[in-house]
Simulated scan of single mutants.
Amino acid sequence: MEEPIPVLAAGDGFVLNRLLTEALHATGGGPSAWQVRELELPWPHVPFGPVGEVVEASGSEDVLIEALAGVRVCLTQMAPLTRRVLRACPDLELFAVSRGGPVNANLAAAAEHGVAVTFAPGRNAASTAEHTVGLMLAAMRRIPQAHAGVLAGRWDSAQFAYEATGLEIEGTTVGLVGAGAVGGRVAAALTALGARVLVADPYADPAALPAGVRLVELPELLASSGVLSLHARLTPETAGMIGAAELAALPPGAVLVNCARGGLLDYAALAGALREGRLFAAALDVYDEEPLPADHPLRGAPNLVLTPHLAGASRAVARRAARMVAAEADRWRRGKPLLHRANGGGS
C-alpha cells in the first residue's frame, strides 16, 4: 500500500479547511491517500493584501513555511506562494489555488522550483450571475428604498405614484458587455424573464448564445439598452470602456449594473449621470477603489444599490472551489494532466 501523500489544507473563513479535507477524502484515493494537516488563514476577518511579491494573499510567509514542512501538496485560496516560501519548502510539488486566478502565487518562481500551480476558473460563475440579476431587480424595482422605508416606520402609498414606481425586466432590452461564463448565464436568466437581450463581445460564438439573444456591436448595444450590464474581462483594451460618452449614448432613464471589474467603468462619470437624472439607477458590486473611500464620487449619488464585492460569495462556491482543487490534487496523484494549470512547472 502506498504511503499517504502529505497535504496542507490552508483554508480560511470562506473556503473552509473541512471543505478542503472532505473534498480530498471524496477523491478516488479516499482518506487513506492523503495525510492532511490544516492551517487556518485569517481572511475574510482580516483583509487580504500583498505578502512578499504577491498580491491578495492572507497570512504570513513564516507561518506558511512552518506549516509546509515536508508537504508535497497545498490546497488553498489565499496562502502566499512567494519566492521565499518556495526556497524554504523543497518538498512542495503542487500548489492548488481555489480561486478564479492564482494572484497569490509567484508563477515564475514556482516554475523555477518545479512546483505546478493550478486554479479554479469558473468556480463562482453561477453565484456572480445570480447576484447580477438580483442587483438588477433591486435597482429597477427600487427594493432597497422600499425596505428602508418600512424599517423606518413608513408605509408609503406614494410609492404607487407613477414617477415613483420601478421598471420591469420583461419587455426591456438588456445589453450585456461580455458573454463568457457569467454573461451567458445572465443572458439565459433574463431571456427566461422576458427581456430582449443583446450582447457585445468580439469573442462570443453566436451559436453558443441562448436562443433569441442577438450579437451586436457596442454602439448599437448602448443606443438600444434600457439596462446595461458589464461582464467583460479587464484588459488594456477594455479598461475604462464605459465612460461619459458611453453613458450618454444610453437611452434616458437606463440602468447600469457592474458585477465584473471596477476598471471597466468611469465611476465619476457614472455619479454625474445619476445626479443629473440621466440614469434611472445603478447597481454595483465592484469599484475603481476598494474599499470605497469616504470621499468617493458615488457617495451621495442617488438611486444606487451597492454591495462590497461579494457577488462570487456563496456556500456553493466554497464547496465547488474545494472540489475543484481536490480533483486537481487527485489527478496529480494519479499522474494525470492537470486541467487548470497556470504555469509550466512541476509534473
Rank of each mutant, 00 (worst) to 15 (best):
S60W: 09
H45W: 13
V73F: 03
A69I: 09
V63T: 11
V71T: 14
E61V: 15
H45V: 06
R72A: 14
G70P: 08
D62Q: 14
P44R: 11
V46L: 15
P42W: 14
L39S: 06
E66A: 13
P44L: 09
H45C: 03
V55S: 12
F48G: 01
A67H: 08
L41K: 04
I65G: 06
L68D: 01
L68E: 03
L68C: 09
F48T: 05
V46Y: 14
L68P: 00
P50D: 10
V54I: 08
S60T: 15
V73S: 04
P42G: 11
P50S: 11
E56D: 15
P50C: 07
E56N: 15
S58I: 05
E38I: 07
E56P: 02
E66I: 01
G52C: 01
P47S: 10
V73K: 01
V63S: 11
I65W: 09
L64D: 03
R37I: 00
P44C: 11
V51Q: 00
V54M: 05
V63K: 07
W43I: 01
V46A: 15
P47L: 04
G70L: 09
G49Q: 06
G70S: 05
E61I: 11
G49Y: 03
E38G: 05
R37G: 00
V73T: 05
G52K: 02
G59Q: 13
H45I: 03
G59P: 12
G70E: 08
P42N: 13
P44I: 10
R72N: 02
P44M: 12
P50Q: 08
W43M: 00
I65Y: 10
E61W: 12
P50V: 07
A67S: 08
A69F: 11
H45Y: 13
E53W: 08
A67I: 08
V54L: 06
V51I: 06
V46Q: 15
